Simulated scan of single mutants.
Amino acid sequence: MGQLSKYQKWAFILPLMAVLIWSLNIAVTRYVADYISPVSISFYRWFVAFLILTPFMLPNVWKQRALIRPYIPKLAVLSAFGMVLYQGLSYTAAHYTTATNMGIVNAFVPVFTIFISYIILKDKPNRFAIFGSFLSFLGLLYVMSQGHFSRLFDQGGHWGDMVMVIAVGFYTFYGVFLKKWQLQLPLMTSLYIQIVFALLYHAPFLLWLGLDSINAENVASVLYAGIFPSLIAPLLWMIAVQAIGPNRTSIVMNLMPVFTAIIATFWLSEHWTIYHTIGGVTILVGIILAQKKTTKTAVALIETSS
């Protein structure tokens, strides 16, 4: 890699801020689980983002409607995977597991990407990627079993972690399809259309399960989720990719479990244990190995993060 300019060095702050925002959102997700249902917080998150973006985006979307129309089915699929299934299951998982565990499982995206990319994109992994994936998977099982593999199959004991694993799996499909299709649309236009679909997808769930009201206990979390991780963090990330490149930017994502654990420790009084350390380090080492071939793919996963 060539030498970085002074501007590029300062630009490293941008992905750090984005990852910090996403990490805090995981803690917010865990905190607000006691005050609002998963489907309600998921709907409000994208509704807030929709209200903010509409005055700026709707005129452009209308002008670009002929360009957008052919991509509607693909945008609908991306929205389902990235904004509804991933986010909805994440909010559900928060009722049954800790923010620390959610952050660790969330870091597993690059490993899932290797195998799904192989199936969909025929992108064959190298030996480092395979070994790194296996190592990360062992680390994930170690964390889920709380340091004792014999506990892994305790009935109901790891429901939240398993739901989070499924959520991350859906998000990985989102990123792989994003790379496969290479939509020729402005990023903010793509994001806005996906948000519209997300709101439509929530309608049957709201009719069936109902919508919790916004009150003093959950309003701050709703506004944070709708503004910072949904709009500001992706914008910071996209600027960073342009300034310092996708490879350098994607490395910062490995800090998410660390940031999440620190926030959860001080805010939610969660305890970082020795099994978190051993499992987390094992996952991180595996991810570093795995990303030798998948860094560019991993960057595509950040258009709508956790």
Rank of each mutant, 00 (worst) to 15 (best):
P59Y: 07
P59I: 08
P59L: 10
N60I: 07
N60L: 14
N60R: 14
V61K: 02
V61H: 08
V61E: 04
W62P: 01
W62H: 09
K63E: 12
Q64I: 01
Q64E: 14
Q64T: 04
Q64C: 04
R65V: 11
R65H: 08
A66E: 14
A66Y: 09
A66R: 14
L67H: 09
L67Y: 00
L67M: 06
I68S: 00
I68V: 12
I68T: 02
R69E: 05
R69F: 13
R69D: 04
R69V: 12
R69Q: 11
P70M: 05
P70D: 04
P70V: 05
P70E: 08
P70G: 02
P70L: 06
Y71H: 10
Y71R: 01
Y71W: 10
Y71A: 01
Y71S: 10
I72Y: 02
I72V: 13
I72C: 09
P73S: 02
P73Y: 02
P73I: 00
K74D: 00
K74C: 03
L75G: 01
L75I: 08
L75K: 09
A76K: 03
V77L: 15
L78H: 12
L78I: 09
L78R: 07
L78P: 04
L78F: 12
S79E: 00
S79D: 05
S79K: 02
A80D: 00
A80I: 11
A80Y: 09
A80G: 10
F81A: 00
F81P: 05
F81W: 05
F81Y: 10
G82L: 03
G82M: 00
G82A: 01
G82P: 07
M83Q: 06
M83G: 02
V84L: 11
V84S: 02
V84W: 10
L85K: 04
L85I: 15
Y86T: 07
Q87W: 05
Q87T: 13
G88V: 10
G88M: 12
L89F: 15
L89P: 15
L89R: 14
L89W: 13
S90H: 09
S90L: 15
Y91E: 07
Y91D: 06
Y91M: 09
T92D: 04
T92Q: 12
T92M: 12
A93P: 11
A94Y: 13
A94Q: 03
A94T: 15
H95T: 15
H95E: 13
Y96L: 03
T97Y: 10
T97W: 11
T97K: 05
T98C: 03
T98M: 02
T98A: 04
T98H: 01
A99Y: 09
A99T: 08
A99S: 11
N101A: 09
N101R: 13
N101F: 10
M102T: 14
M102G: 14
G103Y: 07
G103R: 06
G103A: 06
G103E: 03
I104W: 01
I104K: 03
I104Y: 08
I104E: 05
V105K: 07
V105C: 03
V105A: 06
A107N: 14
A107P: 03
A107T: 11
A107H: 03
F108R: 04
V109M: 11
P110Y: 13
P110A: 14
